[in-house]
Design a protein around this nucleic acid. Structure first.
Lengths: 245, 245
DNA sequence: CCATTACTGTAACATTTGTTACAAACTTAC
DNA sequence: GTAAGTTTGTAACAAATGTTACAGTAATGG
């Protein structure tokens, strides 16, 4: 059963069981996969496919890179992080996901169903698993779900592309500028409340922490940004844009 | 009509037209999208959807980054390259595609149908376009095509993930080692015939060309590799693996 | 409230990579 | 076969980033 041992299974369900969807119908209603699908319909759907709920403790590894991947996993509670870990324990953080996101949507299909990242639970986390075959059947019976799934895969691909663009910006200034300008867009304000610590940012950018600190100090000295703890004010976004090259 | 002006259209086709599929049925037969679909069936399929063939000259830009993207494009002749280009003309090469590949499969869907890369024709190139709506209809009528499409998207996502892993390897030695070991695997030999010039490799890695040349010379001096033009012999693949960290 | 842990700021120094420039070698077109 | 264009090798130097270490600060859990 994929990369889970049976002990992790809270409640193995068959098509007659209603445990899971009853507990999680509200969460699933917010899942992109079931966007514009009624709660009632979601209930029917979950009943009609094989599914399991599995539970993980904080910092527990959910799946290792290169594990085979044959079911769709929907986070119904908690949050996880996907990262590439090298031999010496150095980390490149790829993405964070939390309920009601789906995990590694793209990797159930393709010629090589292997995870490219190691997935770790950040907190107490529960996953709902649906096997590939059942998912395909679902696509046949619920076209809306198929369209949603295509959109999810597409959004992931966009995310990966943005990530590549960011990593391709050779300088730390470039990476930081990219990140900050993205935040300005999503938070709709020049006064940013950062969600990540410097240490985490350094992991996201794949650089050394003191190097990031140095650049942040320089940008402060140059009057481009103004940091006060995790509160950052963008003073000169044009200057930031200049670094995106 | 997407990012093409009408002048580029060779032969606008309606569902009664058989021009395109007649000319390209053999190519399409090799396309992953129509894997395990008979030529006859492919003919029916192309006749049943809106489609156009468009032509590009070598080095002609097919689509700019951030262009909207509303049709699937199948390369029926020639090859293209997708790259991120910054203000100053510096380049990060993302991927190369040639007939019968499909272009940016994932970006027709999602909340933001924008291309992440600029696509340029490498040679005399012809594309077959199928609008999103017709593609979705096709998924409904031909389940095999849907499954193929999901696999294509998944393979793309795998490719992007590998790219991220490669870019995340901080050192040039790491990137080069990653590339060489991948080549050893695909060419099934320690004697590699490189498909890319140093200049191209530098673009793929997102680094400066002389820096790459220096590392190649160093690895030669250290007896790890042995380069003779585009012919490279891997002498110590263990040493190479050590750089993948 | 204290102890513990994690996070931040900073400095000196080592290492890597980029930049620029130029010459040699190789390709290609004519 | 020659000229023009491209790719490669190399060097000196500049700039960016990593490493290590340590002290100060904030956050957290009992």
């Amino acid at each position: 059963m994929d990369f889970f041992s049976e002990k992790d299974v809270i409640a193995p369900c068959n098509s007659g069981c209603s445990f899971c969807f009853l507990n999680y119908a509200d969460v699933l209603g917010n899942n992109y996969l079931f966007k514009e699908v009624s709660s009632e319909e979601i209930g029917y759907i979950i009943k009609s496919v094989h599914h399991q709920v599995k539970q993980f403790k904080p910092n527990e590894i959910i799946a290792h890179a290169d594990d085979p991947y044959n079911s769709l996993y929907i986070i119904v509670k908690g949050s996880v992080v996907g990262e590439i870990v090298d031999f010496e324990g150095k980390v490149l953080r790829i993405e964070e996901l939390s309920a009601p996101d789906t995990i590694a949507t793209a990797f159930i299909f393709g010629d090589n169903n292997q995870l490219p990242v190691t997935v770790t639970a950040l907190e107490e986390t529960r996953l709902l698993a649906i096997p590939r075959q059942d998912l395909l059947r679902l696509f046949r019976t619920h076209e809306k779900v198929l369209h949603n799934y295509l959109n999810i895969m597409a959004n992931r691909a966009q995310h990966l592309s943005r990530k590549i663009r960011m990593l391709g910006l050779q300088s730390i200034r470039g990476k930081l500028a990219h990140y900050l300008l993205e935040q300005v867009k999503t938070q709709r304000s020049d006064q940013l409340q950062l969600k990540h610590s410097q240490t985490q940012l350094a992991e996201i950018f794949g650089i050394a922490r003191p190097s990031l600190a140095r650049v942040i100090r320089e940008l402060n000295e140059e009057g481009i940004i103004d940091t006060r703890g995790k509160q950052i004010t963008i003073r000169d976004s044009n200057a930031l844009s200049q670094f995106l090259k």
